[in-house]
């Protein structure tokens, strides 16, 4: 059973890379898992990577007790509004950010440990009809929210104690922003995707909207996951949850697109499609460096090398049923795959 899960089921090629099972954690009190993530946590003079699991009404922090064993450290109970997602804050220690709401995000909260009071607590950062949120390096949070009349984009700088230090308004594009990604290595640059299938660029320091660029209408509702600038081009990793299968390239899951921000022109660099012979399509996914992972409608998790456009491993649905969540750990190289019943398995 275990061996079967470790071998990637690729019908058409060598199994050069595979997923190696590391450990499992199971929360028997979790009725329905909604998200999983990792967070850096400093305690007793050392900093370690911990796992965070979320159900609709609670968020739990797990610490490694032994190489293959996890223990729950604390559970924050959030019973008034359901938890929708965990929002990773890169490079941030001892703070978990969560989005709560009914159909869409209504508030964003920080969950943290206060050494002053020796207690776990949570604090409210933002409320509204929030369409998209992303955590950036240096404890910054960007969100888009919508009123009847207008769209508001805001960056909040967070203090170590979970307060908001500073707020910067960003100029909104005409279309609703659906996702954000920081431009790696450029602290003041942010990109976003829009409901009109454009990629937009902001200057976070000034709030200026610098450029709006068409992605092309072949792949509607693109979601940006990662962006970096190289040799004067802006490379953006997009996923395509609503893309239709085509004869020439199958069902696309991720695409790397190169934009020239000066001219707004773009060209596709690489496609990552569902592995051949696998029915279904992309449901949701995560990107870390050049690795993409996604849950498919078949209940499997697939992993790709995004620069080679190659599916490198598949986790078929196991005895516990369909996979529901696929996330990369903050360190990369570790995949967290989760079932709805609260079981999370870590693979290297």
């Amino acid at each position: 059973d275990v061996v079967e899960q470790l071998i990637p089921l690729l019908p058409d090629g060598p199994r050069e890379e595979s997923l190696q099972f590391v450990s499992e954690l199971k929360d028997p009190s979790c009725p329905c898992a909604v998200d999983v993530s990792t967070v850096w946590w400093a305690a007793a003079g050392r900093r370690e990577l911990r796992v965070v699991t979320a159900s609709e009404s609670s968020v739990s922090l797990w610490e490694p007790l032994a190489p293959d064993c996890w223990g729950k450290v604390h559970t924050w109970h959030l019973r008034e509004i359901p938890v929708i997602q965990i929002v990773p804050l890169p490079d941030t220690c001892n703070i978990v950010c969560v989005a709560l709401g009914e159909l869409e995000i209504g508030e964003i909260r920080l969950l943290l440990y206060s050494s002053e009071t020796d207690s776990f607590k949570h604090s409210l950062v933002k409320t509204g009809n929030i369409k998209a949120v992303v955590g950036l390096k240096d404890r910054r949070l960007v969100s888009s929210s919508r009123t009847m009349q207008e769209q508001q984009l805001e960056m909040v700088s967070l203090s170590e104690t979970g307060g908001s230090k500073d707020r910067q308004t960003l100029m909104p594009p005409e279309e609703t922003v659906t996702a954000f990604a920081e431009v790696e290595g450029m602290r003041e640059a942010l990109v976003g995707t829009t409901a009109g299938n454009s990629v937009v660029i902001w200057n976070l320091k000034t709030g200026q909207l610098l450029r709006k660029m068409d992605v092309g209408y072949s792949y509607p509702a693109s979601i940006c996951h990662r962006a970096y600038s190289d040799s004067g081009l802006l490379f953006v990793v997009l996923s395509h949850p609503h893309a239709k299968e085509s004869e020439s390239c199958g069902s696309p899951a991720f695409r790397v697109v190169a934009f020239n921000p000066r001219t707004g022109r773009s060209t596709g660099v690489m496609f990552s499609c569902l592995p051949p012979g696998r029915a279904g399509r992309y449901l949701e996914g995560d990107v870390w460096d050049t690795a993409g992972a996604a849950v498919l409608t078949s209940g499997a998790v697939a992993v790709w090398d995004l620069l080679q456009g190659r599916c490198t491993a598949v986790l078929p649905p196991g005895p516990a049923g369909h996979w529901a969540l696929a996330r990369w750990a903050a360190t990369g190289a570790v995949l967290l795959a989760g079932h709805r019943n609260g079981t999370v398995r870590l693979y290297r």
Partner: peptide
């Protein structure tokens, strides 16, 4: 991808676009 497909490329695109965009 070639420069002819994407147009002239600038290594300082972020600074240039920030200088040109409305404040």
């Amino acid at each position: 991808c070639s420069e002819s497909d994407l147009g002239p490329i600038s290594l300082n695109w972020f600074e240039e676009l920030s200088a040109e965009a409305p404040p």
